[in-house]
């Protein structure tokens, strides 16, 4: 692990491209601050998914977090975002 302290996050350019491909109109653009905030939002989304799945696995006394744990927390996760 070369970058232990380095914060894992989505790259700004990735977020910009990602959102841009989903826009219906080509002329829709993103401000710099919007991209930054969306990167944060996506990070929180993934972290929530991971932590909730992990908790589900814990409650079932499983060593590994598997897809079934994620499936169980998915409905509430989507309601929260």
């Amino acid at each position: 692990m070369a970058e232990m302290d380095a914060e894992v996050a989505f790259k700004k350019e990735t977020v910009r491209k990602l959102l841009s491909t989903f826009f219906k109109e080509d002329k829709t653009k993103l401000s710099g601050e919007a991209v930054l905030l969306m990167a944060e939002m996506l990070k929180v989304f993934v972290q929530e998914a991971a932590v909730r799945s992990q908790k589900q696995a814990e409650s079932e006394d499983c060593h590994q977090v598997d897809i079934e744990h994620f499936e169980k927390i998915l409905p509430q996760l989507l309601l929260d975002f």
Partner: peptide, 29 residues
């Protein structure tokens, strides 16, 4: 948390995130 994520779990979270992006993008637009 000393717990490993299976490959499928990670793939599922990634896929969900990708689709959530679609929703976010359409909302933002």
């Amino acid at each position: 948390h000393r717990r490993e994520f299976s490959r499928q779990a990670i793939a599922a979270i990634a896929e969900t995130t990708f689709r959530q992006c679609d929703t976010f993008a359409k909302d933002l637009e």
